[in-house]
């Protein structure tokens, strides 16, 4: 919970968190080492100096640390766990749904557990999706369309097989499709950054929400154009938000473009924990004001109302969270814990 200077409580849902294990023992090869090194560079480069972790802690942190960073020291009320498998790089995977589920099970009122699928797994993967959905009661999935696999350089949301998965997702009540369209996980070919396939799928699946994580960076320009035409396309702020500290000027431009094209009802806050911790992100975002020249040029404003939507109300709406009921549950949980 974040309390404003006027004493108003703001309910915060962190749309993008991970509970990973990239420890030396779990690294399968040089790619595993380089992957976490790259994450660490993001962390080190964009975090305030006093928030930078030791490398070893960054590679593997325990459940208590994560809980404390998000909900005790940090202002998050709830968080969505987004999986990243990377089983080619890590012996037990990097941040699998299974690993995340242990976290979610321990704190059921705090976490929303998302799954994943890859249409290149074919029929078998479809069965797997049914099993996952049943086991974890999924409401969302995270997809990496740009991931290389064998000779495949990625896939598109507009592929025939992806459509079958999306049809299955819709039937299974998995309403929220988070698509990683951002900085790369694996090296990409010419189309992998492309966000045009989101346009196609969003038109065909009007009952699903497509949350474009990292708001299409490094293709923000193309993304904004698509998002404005589709009512069910959302922007995830992870990776864009930390610039609020190191490059507030750039962040002002980014958020104003998103407000203009995507609108305040369709932007979702995400810390990308443990790359960044929520406390400073939320505090800086709440204090942030658009510079006059940017506001004037784009004609948008970042009001308190807009901030509340971005930090929690939008995610609550698409994940079907009743905020008042959730607050009551969390209060009850605290009382039990205190006894």
């Amino acid at each position: 919970m974040y309390r404003t200077k006027d004493g108003e409580d703001i309910f915060i849902i962190d749309g993008h968190t991970h509970f990973w294990d990239a420890s030396k023992g779990n690294q399968k090869n040089v790619h595993g080492t380089q992957f976490i090194d790259c994450f660490y560079a993001y962390h080190k480069n964009l975090s305030p100096k006093d928030q930078v972790w030791e490398k070893e802690k960054f590679e593997k942190y325990d459940a208590e640390t994560m809980y404390r960073d998000l909900f005790v020291d940090g202002p998050d009320d709830m968080a969505i766990l987004q999986p990243t498998f990377l089983t080619d790089f890590y012996n037990n995977g990097f941040n699998t749904t299974e690993r995340n589920s242990a976290m979610a099970k321990k704190h059921p009122n705090r976490f929303i557990l998302n799954g994943a699928f890859d249409p290149r797994d074919g029929e078998k993967g479809l069965e797997g999706l049914h099993e996952q959905a049943e086991k974890y009661k999924l409401k969302g999935v995270k997809l990496y369309t740009a991931e290389w696999r064998g000779e495949s350089k990625g896939y598109k949301l507009s592929d025939k097989m992806t459509y079958r998965y999306l049809e299955a997702a819709e039937k299974l009540g998995i309403k929220n499709i988070h698509v990683h369209k951002g900085p790369t996980i694996l090296p990409l070919n010419r189309d992998a950054f492309d966000v045009a396939d989101v346009d196609d799928a969003a038109t065909s699946f009007q009952n699903l929400n497509f949350i474009v994580e990292h708001c299409g960076l490094p293709r923000l320009d193309d993304f904004c154009w698509i998002a404005t035409q589709e009512t069910n396309v959302y922007a995830g702020l992870a990776v864009a938000l930390p610039f609020i500290h190191t490059r507030p000027g750039y962040f002002a431009h980014i958020i104003s473009e998103l407000l203009f094209w995507v609108g305040e009802d369709k932007i979702l806050y995400g810390s990308d924990y443990a790359i960044w911790t929520p406390r400073w992100l939320v505090e800086k975002f709440m204090d942030f004001e658009l510079p006059d020249d940017v506001a004037k040029e784009t004609g948008v404003s970042l009001t308190l109302e807009a901030k509340k939507k971005i930090l929690g109300l939008n995610a609550a709406r698409i994940y079907g969270i009743d905020i008042e009921a959730q607050k009551a549950k969390l209060r009850a949980g605290e009382l039990v814990a205190a006894e």
């Binding site: 993001y42 480069n45 964009l46 320009d221 904004c224 190191t246 750039y250 473009e257």
Partner: peptide, 22 residues
């Protein structure tokens, strides 16, 4: 044009920062 410029500058800032951190 602004949208394109903001995007490119953002990427530039990210790349420089990552290079420095790396």
């Amino acid at each position: 044009l602004r949208r394109v410029s903001v995007n490119v500058e953002f990427n530039g800032a990210l790349c420089r920062g990552l290079l420095a951190a790396r």
